[in-house]
C-alpha cells in the first residue's frame, strides 16, 4: 500500500466518527423530519400513520391561528432582541475601546451573563420580575414609575424577555471590540486634523469598518433568537394565554404534549426554511452594506 493511500485511509479513519454522527444525527433526521412532515404520524398511534401530502403545511398556514400567533410572538421578540443587541452591543464595544484602566476586569464582568444561562438564570429573572416587590418594579419605583406586571402581562412579557436577552449583550460587544481594536488610530487622527466631527468620524470610519461584525451578529442573532425555548418554557410557559408562546415551544408541545409528530415536523421544516430564507436575504444584501477592506471602495 503506498503512502497516499495509507494517508487517505487514516484520514477517513479519523473523520469516521463525525461522518457517522452526521449521517445519523444530522442528515438522517433532517430527511426523516421532511418525510414525517408529509404524514399524520401520531406518537401514540404509530400503526395508523398515513401519508397526507401537504395537509400539515396547509393546516399550519390556513387552519391554525396558534401557528401564526407563535410566529408573530417569536418574530416580535427576535426583532427587538436583535436590534437592541446590535445597537447596545456596538455602543458598549466603543465605550470599552477607549482604553481606560480596568477595562480588562470590566470585560470579564460583561461576559459573565453568557456563561450563566439556562434554568437557574431563568428562575433568577422570574424572581426579579415578581410584580409584588420584585427588584424590577422596585427600580421602576426609584424613578417614580408605576409598577409593571412584567412576565405576567401579555403586553410586557415579550419586552421582559428582550430585557433578559440584553443582559447578555457582552457577547456581541466582544465581536465588535475585536474589529474596533484593529482600526488604525491614524485614520481617526487624520480625520481629526481635517476637522471632521465625532459624529462624522463615527459615520465615515467606525460604522463602515464594523459592518462585517454587524453582519455576523445579525445572522447569528436572527437564527439564535428565533429558537428561544428554555426561558419561555421555564418562566412563562407560553403565557399569559399565548402571548409568549414561542415557535419552538409550540413545536415542542405539538410533538411531546399532543403527540402530533407529523405536524411538529412540518413546523420544524417551516422554521428551517424561514431561517434559511432570512439568512440568504441577509447574505444577498450584504454586498450593498457590508464593507470589506480587501474589496472595492464604496
Amino acid at each position: 500500500m503506498n503512502a497516499s493511500r495509507r494517508e487517505a485511509l487514516a484520514a477517513y479513519g479519523l473523520v469516521s466518527p463525525w461522518l457517522i454522527g452526521f449521517l445519523f444525527l444530522s442528515l438522517g433526521p433532517m430527511v426523516a423530519s421532511a418525510v414525517l412532515s408529509f404524514t399524520d404520524y401520531d406518537l401514540l398511534n404509530f400503526g395508523a400513520t398515513e401519508a397526507v401530502g401537504l395537509e400539515n403545511y396547509r393546516e399550519a398556514f390556513t387552519g391554525d391561528p396558534v401557528f401564526w400567533q407563535s410566529l408573530r410572538v417569536t418574530a416580535y421578540y427576535a426583532l427587538l432582541a436583535v436590534a437592541l443587541d446590535l445597537v447596545v452591543g456596538l455602543a458598549l464595544a466603543m465605550v470599552l475601546n477607549t482604553g481606560f484602566r480596568g477595562v480588562r476586569f470590566l470585560r470579564t464582568v460583561y461576559y459573565l451573563p453568557a456563561v450563566v444561562s439556562g434554568v437557574a438564570v431563568a428562575l433568577l429573572w422570574l424572581w426579579i420580575f415578581q410584580p409584588s416587590t420584585g427588584l424590577a418594579n422596585e427600580i421602576l419605583g426609584l424613578f417614580g414609575l408605576p409598577p409593571i406586571r412584567w412576565v405576567y402581562s401579555s403586553t410586557w412579557v415579550i419586552p421582559s424577555f428582550v430585557l433578559m436577552s440584553l443582559w447578555g449583550v457582552g457577547r456581541s460587544a466582544f465581536i465588535y471590540l475585536a474589529i474596533l481594536q484593529q482600526i488604525p488610530t491614524n485614520l481617526y487622527e487624520a480625520a481629526a486634523v481635517d476637522g471632521t466631527g465625532a459624529l462624522s468620524r463615527f459615520r465615515r470610519i467606525t460604522l463602515p469598518l464594523v459592518t462585517p461584525a454587524i453582519f455576523l451578529n445579525l445572522v447569528l442573532g436572527v437564527i439564535g433568537n428565533f429558537q428561544i425555548f428554555t426561558q419561555g418554557f421555564v418562566i412563562s410557559q407560553g403565557g399569559p394565554g399565548t402571548s409568549s408562546l414561542f415557535y419552538v415551544l409550540y413545536l415542542y408541545r405539538n410533538a411531546f404534549s399532543y403527540f402530533r409528530v407529523g405536524y411538529a415536523s412540518a413546523l420544524a421544516w417551516i422554521l428551517f426554511l424561514l431561517l434559511l430564507a432570512l439568512t440568504l436575504v441577509t447574505f444577498a444584501s450584504s454586498s450593498r452594506w457590508v464593507y470589506y477592506e480587501a474589496g472595492r471602495d464604496r
Binding site: 433526521p29 414525517l36 415536523s265 421544516w269
Partner: peptide
C-alpha cells in the same frame, strides 16, 4: 438549527 432534527 437543532429543531429540525429534534423529533427524528
Amino acid at each position: 438549527p437543532g429543531e429540525v432534527t429534534l423529533v427524528p
